[in-house]
Write a protein that binds this DNA or RNA. Structure first.
Lengths: 352, 352
DNA sequence: GTGAAAGCGCTAACAG
DNA sequence: CTGTTAGCGCTTTCAC
């Protein structure tokens, strides 16, 4: 209302010495009060606390970190914050670390493998330890980096002995899924593979290779696809051409993209074709039809990474990888192979 | 293979003085080389650079920040990293800031309004400026906080004059949407409202209040719902009870949750009922049916926040809020009101 | 063109 | 129990 507002002092941030002066004590005493150390005279302590609260003083984290050589903060580097895959991992790390009094700072590399190491190094220098979620960089780069950011935890990449590792056993997971489909009578299954450089995609491929060797009766056709909705959406032609009665998508996003397309094409899921995803993202259970997928407890994966990392911070050496095996989550998008299916697919092919 | 691995020195991180010593120069010279300052003798400079590269030295950001009083880094505080709403904003901020040579650090408050201010303060003290995305804290808390973290940008909350503001005009958006539905002939529309404390929900409510005043012929029934899939999923009974022929959900998640439920119930969208969302999350165009929704250029919202914030960092005062108006995105989930609809709904009601 | 030294804000011995 | 003092690693006058 009034037009002469009092402009707050242009934020010349309070320092510890300001508080000390106001309280008529030394910096050290203020510091002790702040950190709850060596029993300071309660009267003085209270006075200091009052002043701090009154003027709203907050210690400079930067100075504190520098002096302590530690910040009670860890950094997490993720390739892409918009990938739901990573959110749960992130939350898992976050929750677990917070419970131990650690702050968490996140850096997104925007899927830019080149800048990844630099970002990691930078954030590591402001924190006490690092969590790298599914780093995209090459293996030599990764190993070189780990040498310099210790202690660090790496999620979903194998490393040398210089970091804690937590990972998902994608090979086993995709085999479980293939087996589910085989059990339903499908013998011609398409696999929509993800990004070529993706380690987790390679794991799935390796798993399927083994599976083929063990089950000659089922044919698994790999269709290079991608990792997003649109990739799944675009894959329809290839799927149709492959004449598969069931498809395993690289992940839930791809599966949902394909399902969306199938709806447009008038192909029914699961009556005409079964579709399964991977990851069990939150939306998977609400899609129509609800998506059969492989579920991993990503939160626990993250929490586990933190626990191991914490050991490292405390100097305990512990270098066994924690491996998480995905669990089959059967929903409505997969169903037994039916004779009608062939007709449908055939009909589509001739009409095309 | 060999079993006596050379254990790298337990990471006693290199300091500038190590480099100085190795190069036979002073700290100051190394510093100058690093920062590309005052023409250092090119031979020396090259030698220093070589050594730095060779030993892989990276300056301590902490020390650098302390000395410089700035870190070329900004902090972004988000209430919940798993909400897709915020990803695009975040990316927008990130991209724009990165282009200006600023790093971005993200802090997630895990939807914990109590810790929000503390987290903000903490991250602000490691960075040069702050972006608060849709903070949950009360208005007094927010104003008090802003007083102490300047410069800061706030997204989707109004503030006093102590921060840059960028926001979405949800009131106008929901009106546009209501108008779309009215244009299709719907006269009884349900609005699935979001979290009560949510500012953006209040904006929508306000918008609808105005809309009702202007269009007495259409009835808008508010149904308290929530902001997630499951909330939408659960809202079916209430929607049915309201006898609405169209529903506007608080956001896309809620809309998709409801659509999933409708599929389970055998109610067809949009033949039996029209459903619209808000936000235009990436998945909205791949759902079946594809979702009609209000689209906001969230990336641009974030980028705009950064641009204004940057002005503040540079000392330019600029306090006009940037307002973004959502744009209607018509897809397959909304359709003209049809007589059959009443029968369907009626049938459902009697059978219930 | 380069080095010495002071200082960023805080903590942690070490005295008193 | 409290104050003095010496750094944490880097930048930056100010001399040389």
């Amino acid at each position: 209302m009034g037009n002469k507002r009092i402009r707050k002092n242009p934020v010349r941030p309070m320092r510890i010495s300001d508080i000390a002066e106001l309280a008529g004590v030394s910096n050290a005493t203020v510091s002790r009060v702040i950190n709850g150390f060596s029993t300071v005279n309660e009267d003085i302590a209270q006075r200091v606390r009052d002043i701090i609260k009154e003027v709203g003083y907050v210690p400079s984290q930067t100075a504190r970190s520098l002096s302590l050589g530690a910040s009670e903060t860890i950094g997490v580097v993720v390739p892409d914050l918009s990938n739901p895959m990573y959110h749960e991992v992130l939350r898992g790390v976050h929750r677990a670390a917070a419970a131990d009094g650690y702050r968490v700072l996140v850096a997104d590399t925007l899927e830019e493998p080149r800048g990844e190491a630099a970002v990691a190094l930078d954030i590591r220098h402001r924190t006490d330890a690092l969590v790298l979620i599914a780093p995209r960089m090459t293996r030599p780069e990764l190993l070189a980096l780990l040498m310099r950011v210790h202690p660090a935890a790496v999620i979903n990449r194998t490393t040398g002995e210089n970091a804690v590792v937590a990972r998902v056993d994608y090979a086993a997971g995709i085999q479980t899924l293939a087996d589910h489909l085989r059990g339903l009578g499908h013998s011609r299954i398409a696999f929509l593979s993800g990004p070529e450089q993706s380690r987790s995609n390679q794991d799935r491929q390796r798993g399927l290779e083994e599976y083929r060797a063990a089950h000659a009766e089922v044919e698994i056709i790999e269709i290079p696809t991608g990792s997003g909705f649109d990739d799944g959406h675009r894959s329809w032609e290839a799927v149709r051409e492959a004449g598969a009665s069931a498809v395993m998508a690289f992940n839930d996003l791809v599966a949902l993209g394909l399902i969306g397309r199938l709806a447009e094409e008038g192909v029914r899921v699961p009556e005409d074709i079964s579709v399964a995803g991977f990851d069990n993202i939150p939306f998977a259970q609400y899609s129509s039809p609800a998506l059969t997928t492989m579920a991993v407890d990503l939160g626990e994966l993250g929490a586990s990474a933190w626990r191991d990392l914490r050991q490292e911070i405390e100097g305990v050496e512990r270098r066994e990888a924690s491996v998480f095996t995905p669990v089959l989550q059967v929903r409505a998008s997969t169903a037994p192979y039916s004779a009608r299916l062939d007709e449908r697919i055939a009909a589509h092919e001739t009409s095309a």
